[in-house]
Design a protein around this nucleic acid. Structure first.
Lengths: 337, 337
DNA sequence: AGATAAATTGCATACGTATTCAAAAACTGT
DNA sequence: ACAGTTTTTGAATACGTATGCAATTTATCT
């Protein structure tokens, strides 16, 4: 079976029909190339007749540029990352490039995925969900493929990155809660997650600096359900917390639902909850969640412009940009006005 | 500036280092090709030393297959479509293919987007958010690019499609609500949306068949905010409805929040709300929304397997699959047990 | 018109791989 | 050891485009 389709029309076909050379038809599709109006007209007419359009794969081979950006993600079921992806595609398409979307399922397949991205000769790489092995970094350097990490950063600054200061965000959360609460808790994400680590560390450090040592910690995996479950464990205790910081909004929403519907607690009277991200749902009136907003648009802008600077002028160095979160106070927390 | 990078290592480089021909190194990466263990070892050693891996773009040119599937979407901020996208990427990657993600912003740019997808010589096309112009259909036929529409269908069955029976879903919603309610309303999506049209028609037809004529209609755009706003308009009336069918869950959630927090209504005592999709949030305990579940996994499976059947064996015809929704009854509606 | 400059054209080649084909090498059984 | 068979090999070519270059045409100016 599987007959190869050789019925694609090539530039030679339209050249023959138009009575010009193949070069001419190519030049017709190359902005700024030297071609007379007369030939252009003939070519376009023939092209339309045959329904021709240039084969980008072949073009990429000779031009050594595919106009493809690899975007590596995982869990974009998450509202935050699904908006991030939306912004990236919008911006990248605006720049006349296209997106090879690569999903990472288990952290161990990362190298394979990135290597196939490189095999597709992508012009650049956006990575939101993986730490790069040194092998991969080396491959990117060798092939001179610009890379920008999004909400990740590498310890040694050998690759560009844009991310949010999670530690500072956690600290802001603590500072908001400290005055009016007594028993603090934190719901973190997976052990290996750097974002979870930074955010919770900032929070914990700040409350420890205020002499508080007996705070509680639970772990989730950034999902609503895991937040709900973690909250159940916390609120079941007799020394239940009266303030919970969740390292993601989704877990915070789960926490609120557990508190209200399973434990019949009033928010914020009995319990303050604070999240991280500022996803759409945080502002829904059922939740009205106080949270640390990641400046999503700014972050994507920064990542994209850094990436394209590197693409257009390869000898530029790496750049790491750390942005601050904005504290968005809503009614899920008790706090001074 | 913009120096072309000619430092990529090619099969010739590793051939030279390994002391074999370029053909040999190519065969090393072609499963089933005829090559001795001895040469293979030499090649792999050299390849590793030079950190070589084959250029898929060049390979695609000769093999006439890119192993790329174009996926065309819009508004994947929406939880439903972001899960759809997640499933598609997972399945497509499992099959050893990759995804060219194309976002549609305004319905008029569709042709451009699809035509660039074709220029990239994609092996197949999944389209979730656009109706195809006849020009595009023709291009796909000419290039023999398999296409499958997702939650869209074309009137003339000339292209494969997988979608959900929206009309039947709307009817089920009506049947659930009819016994215990008196004033019905429907919140639709944009005028041009076929999914909105089917779902609302099914609903309206069913209640009309029961002799009810004075139902209300409002329009949103599938978002939470638009659902909230539409509900405000409905609930502000003195003849306010006691049952609202929304053609998407997100609008239903907005409706619930408006009812509860702006109008202080009890759900379901004062108002029943029913949605469509069964997104994650529908089952959150703050909402517990009755809804019509689209069998997302089944739908994606069907779409993928149809697509790959066409890819592997081009002479297969088109196939249209219409699936049924499942009514998921939760506590946002009054209904018989 | 003629000389010169400028724009256009087609030829040939390169991009990096897969693959056909004929030649060479490695086996097989006697 | 030898003819016959199978496996492996490298040279040559194709894929569809862009582009450097020399040749040709067209425009410009006196």
């Amino acid at each position: 079976m599987k007959e190869k389709r050789n019925n694609r029309v090539s530039s030679f076909d339209v050249a023959r029909l138009a009575g010009v050379s193949q070069s001419a038809v190519s030049r017709c599709y190359t902005p700024g190339a030297s071609i007379s109006e007369k030939s252009r007209a003939k070519v376009l007419k023939a092209a339309k007749e045959l329904n021709y359009s240039p084969n980008i794969i072949a073009r990429s081979l000779v031009q050594k540029t595919t106009r493809i950006i690899g975007v590596v993600m995982n869990r974009y079921a998450s509202p935050f990352y699904s908006r991030v992806l939306g912004e990236f595609t919008r911006k990248i398409q605006e720049k006349g490039h296209n997106i090879l979307l690569m999903n990472i399922h288990n952290e161990q397949g990362v190298d394979d995925i990135l290597s196939t991205a490189l095999q597709y000769q992508v012009d650049g790489l956006v990575i939101t969900s993986a730490t790069l092995s040194s092998t991969v970094v080396e491959s990117c350097l060798q092939t001179q493929t610009p890379v920008v990490l999004f909400n990740r950063y590498s310890m040694h600054n050998e690759v560009s990155a844009v991310y949010c200061d999670g530690s500072d965000g956690g600290r802001k959360a603590a500072e908001l809660l400290l005055p009016r609460h007594r028993r603090f808790a934190c719901i973190k994400g997976e052990e290996g997650s750097s974002t979870s680590r930074d955010r919770s560390q900032g929070f914990i450090q700040a409350i420890e600096e205020n002499g508080i040592r007996d705070y509680l910690c639970e772990r989730g995996d950034f999902t609503y359900d895991s937040g709900y479950a973690a909250a159940e464990r916390l609120l079941d205790r007799k020394d239940r917390p009266d303030a919970i910081f969740c390292v993601s909004d989704l877990m915070a929403l789960g926490t609120m639902d557990a508190a209200r519907h399973k434990f019949n607690l009033k928010i914020p009277e009995d319990l303050s909850v604070i999240g991280f991200d500022d996803i759409d749902m945080a502002s829904w009136s059922s939740y009205d969640l106080t949270t640390l907003r990641q400046p999503l648009i700014t972050m994507v802008d920064a990542a994209i412009s850094q990436l394209f600077r590197s693409i257009e002028n390869l000898d530029e160095g790496t750049l790491v940009r750390k942005l601050k979160t904005d504290l968005i106070t809503r009614t899920s927390t008790r706090h001074s006005p």
